[in-house]
Amino acid sequence: MKILVPVKRVVDPCVAVRVKPDASGIDASGVRMSMNPFDEIAVEAAVRFREAGVAAEVVAVSCGVPASQEVLRTAMAIGADRGILVETANELSPLAVAKLLKAVCAEEKPDLVICGKQAVDDDANQTGQMLAALLGWPQATFASALDIVDGRVCVTRDLDDGREALRLPMPAVVTTELGLNEPRYATLPNIMKARKKPLRVVAPGELGGEPSVGVMTIEWAEPPVRRAGVRVESVTDLVDRLRAAKVL
């Protein structure tokens, strides 16, 4: 069984980004970049299946700028066997990425695709579901538990008011919730080993062309800033102030 894991290079989740003074975009100069944390969880889940002998191969795929090779190396340091970079400098939308991934799936023929549920930069939460739709495969989003039993995928999904258990035939697409696992730290020997693993760079042209993007950001703004209010002295002080503010 082969597992494909799409991974995205994003601004590190610990960084509070700022909008450029001219409102033209995010000030990303000198900002630390890393693998989208939900994708790290996806890689970890896939690697555990390989370690358990359930999967034979884990392939990490990224779509984007040349520096995305770094996140593919990170995925390989966690344990992915090889990497594919669909290299483009152009802006991609979730649908565009899903189309490129569909073309990669046509070549690689994975049995399972495990995606992060959302990327922490655009917070779109779309790519996995779109890929499943384009492939006509079943989907299980927001997985907080994932197993493969008798050749079928068993998933517990987190919902707004509880959870549900699904069973899907393969091939299928699963997207990861934060609670699915805690990704391991890549050790130095594994980081070294990852440098020698195969990484193929392909152009969108080799995959049927670069999909067009029809949603453009025309303006960036910072949200209204919240300021620290007052420190209250005691519980009674707090209650008095809440009553005065008419929220009680």
Binding site: V17, R18, P94, L95, A124, V215, I218, A221
Partner: peptide
């Protein structure tokens, strides 16, 4: 077609505002 997620303001039939980067920025998209 593409999707615009988490729209928090509708400016016109094709222009929308949505938060990105954990709400640290608001993007106006066409």
């Amino acid at each position: 077609v593409e999707q615009v997620s988490d729209v928090c303001r509708i400016l016109s039939a094709d222009t929308f505002v949505r938060p990105v980067y954990a709400g640290n920025a608001l993007a106006t998209v066409r």
